[in-house]
Design a protein around this nucleic acid. Sequence first.
DNA 1: CGTCTCGTTGAGAATTATCAAGGTGCGTGG
DNA 2: CCACGCACCTTGATAATTCTCAACGAGACG
Lengths: 239, 239
Amino acid sequence: MIERHIARLRARHSISGAEEQAIRGLVSETRRVAKQTVLIREGALLDSSTLLLDGLLCRYKDMEEGRRQITELHLPGDFADLHSFTLKRLDHNILAMSDSLLATVPHERIQRLINDHPRLGRIYWFSTNLDAAIHREWVLSLGTRGAAERTATLFCELQVRIGLIDGTSPKEFMLRMSQSELAECLGITPIHVNRTLARLREEKLMSFRHNRAEIYDLAGLRRLADFDDGYLYLDPEPL
Amino acid sequence: MIERHIARLRARHSISGAEEQAIRGLVSETRRVAKQTVLIREGALLDSSTLLLDGLLCRYKDMEEGRRQITELHLPGDFADLHSFTLKRLDHNILAMSDSLLATVPHERIQRLINDHPRLGRIYWFSTNLDAAIHREWVLSLGTRGAAERTATLFCELQVRIGLIDGTSPKEFMLRMSQSELAECLGITPIHVNRTLARLREEKLMSFRHNRAEIYDLAGLRRLADFDDGYLYLDPEPL
DNA sequence: CGTCTCGTTGAGAATTATCAAGGTGCGTGG
DNA sequence: CCACGCACCTTGATAATTCTCAACGAGACG
C-alpha cells in the first residue's frame, strides 16, 4: 500500500532505488480506523507521524458551538501530520473521514531516514511546504472566490491529486464525504453547498452524488474556478 | 538588525552561542527597497531567501482583474520565503508593503549552516511549518468568522508577533498598511473594512488610524475573535 | 492651491445564512 | 418482506451579511 506514497513523491522528485528501499522501511505496523475517528487532538504531544495508506483524512480546527473548518484533505499516500516532526504538537485535529488504513511512523525513524539520506530530508521538508501551498490556495479561495468558484477549485485540486497517485487524469473519483463535510471545507453552509452543487450540475460541469464526483467538463470547471495547478508543484524539481 | 531574527527564534527554541554566531554569518549584504516593490514574482526560480530586517512584507496571490489575496504578513525578523529553499519557485508573490531593509541569504549558505548545525535545520523547518500554522488560522478565519471577528483575530495575531521581537505585549504598534491592504488580508472590501474598524472603535476594543494600531481592550478583542494563540507556538519546545 | 491617495458615509443590490419542512435511500429488526 | 428509524439531501421563504456604486471629506505634498 505504500506504493501510493512513493508515487506521490515521484510525481515531484526523482527517488533512487536505495532511497525507495529506505522509505519502505518507514512502515512496519499498519492499523485500520473507522470513519469519524479523531486520530489526533489539537495540542497533544506527538512522537510519530501518520501516513495514510488508504481512505480519507482531514485536518480541522474547532470553533465554538460545533462549527468546524477543515483546513486540508489527505489522500492515500499523504502524510497527514509530517509537520508534527518539527512542531511536536498540532494546532488542529486530524480525523478519519472514511474507514482508513494507516501507518504510524515514529519520528525517530524519520530522523534516522533523514540522517542516512539527507536528500530525503529536503524532500520531506518540501512535502510540508507543499501542504502550506495548498493552505495558501484555500486562503485565496475563501478570501476571494464565491461559492461556486470555490467548490470548483476544490474539485479541480482533488482531481489532480487523486490522479497523481494512480497516474491518470480521472473523469470520476470516489470521495467519501457528505455535503456537510464539504461545507466545512468551503466555509459555506451545507444548504448552500447543496444549491451550489445543483448549479454545477445544471451547468454540466460536474456532479457529486453518493460519494462520487464526476467531472463532465474539466476545462469548463477549471475556467470557472480560474484554476492554475502551479500551487501543486507538479513539475519535478531537481533538488 | 539581525537581533530581531534571533529574538524570534529564541521565542520558540533555545539557541546556543555557537548557533547564534552561525546564524549571524548568514547575513552579509543588506539592501533597502521602497514600499510597493514586488520582491519576488510567482514562478520565478530562486536560489536565495529573503530575511526581513526592518519594514513590512506580505505574500499575496493574484486573481483576475486586480483582485488580490494576501496570505501572510511578515514582520522584522521573519524569513519571507524560507520555503523557497525547498520549493525553488513560489506559488505567490512577495511585496514590500513599506520601505524595508532586507538581507538576501543564498540557499547554499543555508545548506552549509544546516550541514554544520543540523539542529538549526530542524528549527528552520519548524519555521516554515509555523508559517503553515498561520495559514491554517487564516483559513479558519476566512471560512468561519465574520468581518469583525476576522479583523480582531488579525490584530490579535500581529499584537503577539510584534511583541515577540521586542519582548513586550504592546498596547499599540505601527503597521504600515492601508485599509485596502487590510481588506486584501481579510477577504472583505475596503469599504467594509472601514465600517468594521469603526465598529471596533465604537465598541472600545481597538483603533487603527494613520498606520497605527491601538489596542484599548486586549481581553475584549481576544474574546470577540475567540483568539487562542496556540497556533503561534509560543511555548519553547525542546527539539 | 491643486492634486492625489486614502478614508468615510449612504443607499440599494447580491450573496449567503437561517429557519422550516419534506424527500430519499439504506440498514435493522420485527 | 415490510416498517421504521436515521442520516443525508433537497427545496422554499425570509433574514443577515457583505458588496457595489456613488459621492464627499481629510490629510500629504509638490
